[in-house]
Computed example of a mutant assay.
Amino acid sequence: MDMDLAAARTALQAAHRVAVLTGAGVSAESGIPTFRDAQTGHWARFRPEDLASPAAYAADPELVWEWYAGRYRDVLAAQPNRAHTLLAELERQKGAGFFLATQNVDGLHARAGSGAQGGQLVELHGNLGLARDEVTGEVLPLPAPPPLTLPPQSPAGHRMRPHIVWFGEFLPEDALAAAEQAFMQAELALVIGTSGVVYPAAGLASLTQRAGGRVIEINPDKTPLTPFASLSLRETASRGLELLLGPA
Rank of each mutant, 00 (worst) to 15 (best):
T226I: 05
L148A: 08
V191H: 12
L121S: 00
A7W: 00
A55S: 06
A186G: 05
E180S: 07
D37P: 00
G113T: 06
Q181G: 04
A59I: 00
D50Y: 01
M3W: 14
R111L: 12
R45N: 00
A211P: 05
V139I: 15
G196Q: 06
L5D: 07
T10C: 00
P224W: 10
A211Q: 14
L130H: 14
F46W: 15
D221Y: 11
A69P: 04
G126I: 10
W43T: 03
L108K: 01
N127F: 01
H16F: 02
P227T: 12
H109S: 01
L241Y: 04
G213R: 11
R111Y: 00
V64H: 03
H163T: 00
F35K: 05
P61N: 07
L121K: 05
L225Q: 01
L233M: 10
R36C: 04
L121G: 01
F167K: 01
V18G: 13
V197F: 02
T236L: 08
A6F: 01
L51R: 04
L190Y: 08
I164C: 05
R161G: 04
A202Y: 08
A179K: 07
E89S: 13
F98T: 03
A56V: 06
L121W: 04
S114F: 03
A19P: 10
A186V: 12
A205G: 02
E134F: 05
P48K: 06
R71I: 00
E169P: 03
T149H: 15
T40A: 13
W65Y: 05
E138Y: 00
H158G: 11
L124E: 08
